[in-house]
Design a protein around this nucleic acid. Structure first.
Lengths: 207, 207
DNA sequence: GGAGAGTTTGACCAATTGGTCAGGATCACG
DNA sequence: CGTGATCCTGACCAATTGGTCAAACTCTCC
């Protein structure tokens, strides 16, 4: 019998579902959707494969649940970009928050990276919908700051893309970064923070 | 019988091997190593699966051949970063060349992106070896420019990472970019070029 | 035109993979 | 306790996948 879809969750359900999602994050982020196997996820969650499928009715269902669970966390920093405060500082603070997330949630970053590199087959509707809406909103805030002369004239969309690119790079391309910079890892993030602060301060400070 | 490993290539070999590599680029870049199947590659190359394996003895062999064939092309722009000319222009020109490559060779970009996001299992030795050596060399050139006061003081490694990230983003995360910016695609690249020129000019021009 | 090298294929195989199912174990609760 | 709901498992399945092989076809070149 399949798991009941009732609202409240048993303690056991609570525990196993979160174990599955954590295991799935580990496996999907490291191998992509198709590269991941139910056996790997089951092993990582210390459950049997049929037991996995008792909680989620398919591999896709696990993936879907994981993406939707993480989406809010992932977009939270952009939501906090606010019209209060000094614009350049506000944007630099956003860059720092994104960089922190790359350091602290690299698996989440890689999960989305895998998905998007392969054409975003499972989340294209989210990109075109809620994500686009959020970006549009923040882009117009940035444009307003430019118009008021409080930051330099820049294309707000490409500014946002560059921030995503430069910060998530440290999670998504970690293997490359580590191969080129050999010393201890946390040092990299401090250097990256300094560099990115300079990059965006210089580019955004009005003449 | 396996294909002879002799040096010279038949016209047929020439044609089929390049058809296979092109098909493999298409499939691997869109699905990653594990997500790609020999059947897909065979279909894309208009060959039978056993015929694929007549030219390459395994899926890994195709992947390996493809990566090593493309590596030089991929690193060429960084090699041309030269000590002659105005440093800021030189770096901005490098950014533009990388951006052109993201526009013109997105499959190649995604091939490497897929590989690195998943931990670079097949090319980590290249990263630690030849790639690191090349980056080290160019980093010291950039450091020299900084020391001479011809560009601002920046961490050269993180500068290079940020250039890779911002330019390749338009190929690797194309699905996301297209979901957020809906109009015709080539327009994006012009806007990106303008934005990135401003970003790096502002950050690198000495005070 | 024939012989040998080079090329192609259908049939086949073992391993892996996502998923099912009937039944057994365990838990919550009156 | 016992009983019904929840939880778990071994055995199983069909499809897919990377890869093999012997046999047949085709090209090249004397």
């Amino acid at each position: 019998m399949a798991m009941p879809e009732t609202s409240a969750r048993t303690r056991i359900q609570e525990k196993n579902i979160s174990a599955i999602l954590d295991a799935a994050l580990e496996v999907f982020s490291g191998a992509g959707f198709r590269g991941a196997t139910l056996d790997q996820i089951a092993r990582a969650a210390s459950l049997s494969k049929p037991n996995l499928l008792y909680y989620f009715k398919s591999k896709e269902a696990i993936h879907r649940a994981l993406l939707s669970e993480l989406l809010d966390t992932w977009l939270a920093p952009l939501r906090t970009l606010d019209s209060g405060g000094e614009p350049v500082d506000e944007i630099v603070r956003y860059v720092m928050r994104k960089l922190d997330m790359a350091r602290e949630l690299p698996r989440e970053s890689r999960l989305f990276a895998n998905e998007i590199v392969q054409g975003a087959p499972h989340i294209f509707d989210i990109i075109e919908g809620p994500l686009k809406a959020l970006v549009d909103e923040k882009a117009s805030l940035i444009r307003k700051w430019s118009a008021e002369g409080r930051i330099a004239e820049v294309d707000p969309y490409h500014l946002i893309f560059s921030i995503w690119a430069t910060t998530q790079h440290y999670a998504d391309f970690d293997a490359q970064v580590r191969g080129i910079l050999q010393p201890e890892r946390d040092r990299h993030f401090d250097d990256a923070a300094r560099f990115l602060t300079h990059l965006y301060s210089a580019a955004l400070t009005p003449d």
